[in-house]
Design a protein around this nucleic acid. Sequence first.
DNA 1: GAGTTTTATATTGTATACAATTTGTATACA
DNA 2: TGTATACAAATTGTATACAATATAAAACTC
Lengths: 226, 226
Amino acid sequence: MDKQAIYDDLKKRILTLELEPGAALDEARLSEHYRISRTPLREILRGLAGEGCVDIVNNRGAYVSSMSHKVLRDFFVTAPMIYAAIGRLAAQNAKPSQIHEMREIQEKFRAAIAAQATADMVYCNQCFHALMGEMADNPYLKPSYDRLLIDHARISQTFYRPRDPQMAERMYSALDHHDQMIAAIEAGDSKTMVDLIVEHWELSRDLVEYFVKPDPLAYDMAAANS
Amino acid sequence: MDKQAIYDDLKKRILTLELEPGAALDEARLSEHYRISRTPLREILRGLAGEGCVDIVNNRGAYVSSMSHKVLRDFFVTAPMIYAAIGRLAAQNAKPSQIHEMREIQEKFRAAIAAQATADMVYCNQCFHALMGEMADNPYLKPSYDRLLIDHARISQTFYRPRDPQMAERMYSALDHHDQMIAAIEAGDSKTMVDLIVEHWELSRDLVEYFVKPDPLAYDMAAANS
DNA sequence: GAGTTTTATATTGTATACAATTTGTATACA
DNA sequence: TGTATACAAATTGTATACAATATAAAACTC
């Protein structure tokens, strides 16, 4: 397992919440686990800190970045603007090879949904949106976008309930959006792309809203039975 | 000189173009210069890479991040949106202690302009806008904003001509904008704030436009004398 | 028994030595 | 003369040992 692979593995474990927000990342333990010395491991942790996955406190170690209420609020304030901008730029700047790669990811995504393989779904979705960031090809937006994607993955996992039939519906909507996005990107149609991004975003927003404000239990049993 | 001081010093040297875009950052040379070993120096370089000051290529060392035409274009595409968003959030979220600090920076800025101390002007301006980023208090926008500020400083220095009388005018306009911004932030008036940000931005845009498209020399000497 | 100081342990930070990779140069050959 | 290969130098990457700092525990004072 080389350095990049360890980097990716750690990032994946953070994204999938296997390493929970706030969890301490002990250098000695991790370096032993991955069979490398502390020096390169520290560089990996600092790299992840640059991406926003990890918070480092001087002389007190590294922690998986937290997900406080404030962070959640900031996420919902910021994501629409950045996502729209990235979508617009992706439609303008995508290279043919990237569009091809996107189609491949989309087919894997489709298969994962059909197979109800939650982990694969999350991963393919992540790849799809990360690639969109590459297409946009803007070094100033990329760091913010990547940070949003990291927390987007974590938030989605927090609120996703695999047994709820509404979830399957949502996933097929998302899949459909992705198909339309690929078409818009190929056509270089940035206006349609932004509309799709907004629509897609509302899926995520509604998921959390539904969690915070779920269908209430009947508080008047007599009425519920009538 | 502790680690943070070395970090700041390197960043400052990059911002002031003392270390030019694309310049190689030799680990051995730098570690000797700052009297620390390579291990912490490497961490500093990776930290700066996370901020976007430095590009690191595997097995081929660190370089001051470049300023290609594409980067310049991306800068002008992206900055208005992010600056406006940061301005709006700063007006909404600024804490009294931060407003107080901002006033102090502004007075130093005023003094630097009066004294025509270019380096101090650049530094105070940088501090002013960095503090605005702190006020906005949004972890998703901050990485993009900081990256924009780094290149903004470098671009401004590239196109600034201290001997041009127009430059002094511009600086007084900027100073005036800053005064008005502080008032808007204190009043929590985010609408006015965004208008000011746009106006302030046009100063920077015009500076570069003027450089790219300066007053042409007379090409018809007869006509010029008539 | 509560609070403070001291001591021990654990963890992070730094220096140095060594390994791996890349780059430059010289030489052989077409 | 141009290209390819082999070797040498320089530079980056990693491991390990040691130093500094923070946390936990124990002893002490009041």
